[in-house]
């Protein structure tokens, strides 16, 4: 039997099994912390109590399962450090997701909306929104997500533009961190850290190497490393076991296909 021509439905079934079965076991693999994740952790950790931190939820609904653990560790760390968080979204789909996540985690830390955090919501045309905030944040977002004027929150009035913002974190599944680098960092010198989908790391690598972006914490592995740095093993650790098994299964399948194709050719 030529296994290299295996019916794709059998491959789908194998993948389904190796995704579902590991989820039934509560295994948390040992995670090694990489310098990339350490960089974004250190950038947030170096902020002082009461410093502003802008978190941009630059992802869409499709990648929420991968982005949620990343966004959660960033918000957990920020609330633990008593930073003042300004949430926003430059993709319309990230707006509600970001707000819900921010609310959930803020509740765990007994944080108060308008005092410890605000959510600005969504603005279309991310290039002009990023550039506009460099001039005046209140001009781009005169009202927050709850339709309240920003003047209502005196704790956030000092935040005029990027000048008073020591760090911005883009939690992104696509190429938006490049726009943050191109427009917020290159033009206004804004420090931008990135928590991104694992697949995007190579796209951003030149920006990290040049120091225009900080990080990244990437994918489920990056989130698991961050959890370890925060001193707990959460959802990312559990997902990482499943990811390990799936990667191994794909590698075994590729080896089987190659060996089978070689043997079949010999015959």
């Amino acid at each position: 039997m030529d296994l290299s021509r295996l019916d794709r439905r059998i491959i789908f079934l194998i993948i389904a099994i190796v995704v579902i079965v590991p989820m039934l076991f509560d295994v948390t693999p040992e995670v090694q912390i990489t310098k990339d994740t350490e960089q974004i952790f250190d950038a947030i950790d170096s902020l002082k109590t009461g410093d502003y931190l802008m978190v941009s939820f630059d992802f869409e609904a499709a990648s929420f399962p991968e982005m949620r653990p990343l966004a959660s560790v960033i918000l957990n760390h920020s609330f633990e450090k008593d930073l003042k968080i300004i949430g926003l979204a430059l993709f319309s789909e990230g707006t509600a997701i970001g707000y819900t996540l921010l609310e959930q985690i803020a509740r765990e830390y007994d944080k108060v909306y308008g005092v410890d955090y605000v959510y600005l919501g969504f603005r279309p045309q991310y290039v002009s929104a990023i550039l506009g905030m460099g001039e005046s944040i209140i001009k781009v977002f005169p009202e927050d997500y709850l339709k309240q004027p920003l003047e209502k929150y005196p704790d956030f009035l000092e935040l005029e533009n990027y000048e008073n913002l020591p760090l911005l974190v883009s939690v992104a599944d696509g190429s938006l961190p490049i726009h943050w680098a191109d427009y917020a960092n290159a033009r206004y010198g804004q420090r931008v850290a990135v928590a991104c989908a694992a697949v995007m790391v190579t796209a951003f690598k030149p920006y990290f190497e040049s120091g225009q972006l900080i990080g990244p914490a990437a994918g489920v592995k990056g989130a698991a490393e961050y959890e370890k740095l925060l001193g707990y093993e959460g959802a990312a650790h559990r997902r990482l076991f499943t990811q390990s098994v799936v990667h191994l299964a794909i590698i075994i399948l590729v080896i089987v296909a190659n060996v089978s194709a070689y043997v079949w050719r010999k015959k």
Binding site: R8, I11, F12, I15, A16, A249, I250, L253, A261
Partner: peptide, 15 residues
């Protein structure tokens, strides 16, 4: 996508 990636890797990654 994970399923299609696995299937594509199985067929595409050849020595």
């Amino acid at each position: 996508i994970a399923f299609f990636v696995a299937s594509a890797a199985y067929r595409g990654f050849r020595f």
